[in-house]
Design a protein around this nucleic acid. Structure first.
Lengths: 195, 195
DNA sequence: CATCAAGTTGAGCATATGCTCAATTGAGCG
DNA sequence: CGCTCAATTGAGCATATGCTCAACTTGATG
């Protein structure tokens, strides 16, 4: 393979690892899949990442934060209530459930891999923080809003995780449309609840 | 190893497989772990189960239905509202999150393994059915109750899955106590919502 | 051009996995 | 006692995995 600067190569490896992990799952993805995908020798991968566990954690970290940043960009400027609906729609627009597959796979694996746990705890915190902030803003806009925005954010985040998990099972009866409706109803339940 | 009747041996293998899967995860558990655990030759396992995929699916099936049956037994006789709270408490009483670990691991793996998908779709259907039935009964008791019991059951089941997933991540800030409170609040949201 | 450090290679080791198959064991039965 | 057949064995094959290491290539630098 052509020569590259260290930083570029490193980034290319991470990007390839994300694709491989999406296709084979965290537990089955292998270093050879990554090196074959970009046509480099096996030694090169270990030159940039001392172990597969570290590359894997870095891949999940980048994928998770890319998604969080993308959602932030998508809702930027919108009024809070509309932003919240847009955020909820994100999981439906996601082609082939790419992001959710990686997210839930990593969450599951994070109880066997300390590196992944660190990554996921940070990402989950940011994700819930984003939701909680939107709920608070929505409350100020309309006067109402959930009594406890943090608790509501926990419920909404967990609900989305759970629905996405159900959607990912092969031949599941859960569809994006149903999930969308269920989340919308949850939003109404949370926001119309009396303090 | 001592001789056994076919049925007993088969059951012993499944039970051992469940333990192995709990310890290593579905993706990492291996036939050798099972045969070593009960001290038999590798050929014996394949005498009862043509492939690891089938043993694995059978193990998950038994574990899932054992849990559903156990919950049913635990809430049997209770008034619906109390039964619902008892069901929600189940996830906290579960030592070391044994059941949730297997449940979520299987759900995650079920999008790569058709056999597991079949098993999980059936188990998830029964689980939601149980919750929906309780919600309907609770509605009749108190007069109120959720407008759409099936939708409420979906939300409660997904919420519990999501919270359990968060709880399973190492060093997670989600604790059984918090989860218990969040589910309790969700129950109130669902049941006090005006039709 | 020569030098040198960074990028890159890939055969190879140790280990692990699902599964096969010919052979062995043993309980029940006439 | 011998016979039969289900239960059981375990060495072994083909394949896969993370990682090492000595050697090689190449671009920049003086």
């Amino acid at each position: 393979m052509a020569r590259m600067s260290g930083a570029d190569r490193r980034q290319q490896i991470v990007a390839a690892a994300i694709e491989v992990i999406l296709q084979r799952g965290l537990a089955q993805a292998a270093t050879r899949d990554v090196t074959r995908a970009i046509g480099v020798g096996s030694g090169l991968l270990h030159h940039y990442f001392p172990s597969w566990a570290e590359l894997r954690a870095e891949a999940v970290r980048q994928a998770a934060w890319q998604e969080i940043d993308a959602v932030k960009a998508a809702i930027s400027g919108l009024p809070a209530r509309a932003a919240m609906q847009r955020l909820a729609d994100w999981m439906i627009d996601d082609e082939d459930m790419r992001h959710w597959r990686l997210w839930l796979n990593a969450q599951d694996e994070a109880h066997r891999d300390p590196l992944l746990a660190e990554v996921m705890n940070a990402a989950m915190l940011a994700w819930r923080g984003l939701i909680a902030e939107l709920l608070r803003e929505a409350g100020e806009e309309t006067g109402g809003g959930p009594a406890d925005a943090d608790a509501a954010a926990w419920r909404l985040a967990a609900l989305m995780d759970g629905l996405a998990g159900a959607m990912l099972v092969r031949d599941s009866v859960m569809t994006p449309q149903i999930a969308r409706n269920l989340i919308g109803m949850q939003l109404r339940l949370e926001c119309d609840s009396s303090a």
